[in-house]
């Protein structure tokens, strides 16, 4: 095991800052892609206009998984290199990911009620998305309940990495659990008329998510910089 360098020096005086215009642009693009896909998509055979929920639900689900992947990558990177920044990126991605995960679940329910007649079914995707949300919640709770910065960083990196390993296992086990007892709910095979709308909405939400994670990370950096400055002032000034 290489000894990670956890020295606290060598950081810029003022963290970089993403322009707020990027956020405005991301949100306007998302509104535009939604307006475009809602107005252009034809009513679907079985579901009618209900299909339009797909444009928010499916990208939210994709971004949830992407965010968790970011948590995994930066958690492992932190354990390997021990850089404080990686911990803060993982934490930011986890917070944004948990938000999108919650949104995915609620949207799924809003879709399920008219489409299936029930708010919830114990389907493989739904259940594993819910378990993923609980893993995210555990990760964020750990961060909230541990005060020491370095301890929090190391522990949450371990929890993030190990939680991510579990995601495919959870998905597989829930799928088996379901399929061995009753047929899985048929996934809607996607008509080409809807793929374009889905793609542009996914990219728009990706844009929003990147902005959120970057901004969250910069705020965390700023907070950390202020804390270090306060510590240095307390130690340095007599």
């Amino acid at each position: 095991m290489p000894a990670p360098d956890r020295s606290l020096d060598a950081r810029p005086a003022r963290p970089p800052r993403t322009s707020p215009w990027m956020g405005v642009a991301a949100i306007l693009v998302l509104a535009a892609t939604q307006a475009y896909s809602i107005s252009t998509s034809p009513a679907e055979g079985d579901m009618g206009h209900l299909q339009k929920i797909m444009y928010v639900h499916v990208p939210a689900a994709w971004m949830t998984f992407l965010a968790f992947f970011v948590v995994l990558v930066f958690s492992v990177k932190y354990l390997w290199k021990g850089r404080e920044d990686d911990d803060l990126v993982a934490a930011s991605a986890a917070e944004v990911g948990a938000t999108l995960n919650g949104l995915t679940l609620v949207l799924g329910m809003i879709w399920g009620r008219p489409a299936w007649g029930v708010w919830w079914v114990w389907d493989a995707r739904l259940t594993s998305t819910l378990v993923l949300f609980l893993i995210f919640a555990g990760y964020l709770a750990l961060r909230a309940f541990v005060d020491d910065e370095q301890q929090r960083a190391r522990w949450s990196a371990a929890v993030g990495a190990i939680g991510a390993i579990n995601v495919p296992i959870v998905y597989m086990s829930v799928k088996w659990w379901r399929t061995l007892h009753q047929p899985p709910s048929s996934p809607a095979t996607l008509d080409p008329a809807y793929t374009m709308g889905l793609r542009i909405n996914a990219f728009a939400l990706l844009f929003v998510m990147i902005f959120f994670i970057r901004k969250r990370y910069e705020i965390a950096r700023l907070e950390r910089a202020a804390e270090h400055a306060a510590e240095a002032a307390a130690l340095g000034a007599p």
Partner: peptide
């Protein structure tokens, strides 16, 4: 090994552990 050294360990351990134990 982590939760026992944190605040609110009685809450934190089940929160971390139970979702992981779904499989």
């Amino acid at each position: 090994s982590m939760s026992s050294r944190s605040r609110a360990r009685e809450v934190l351990l089940p929160m971390l552990l139970f979702p992981m134990l779904v499989p």
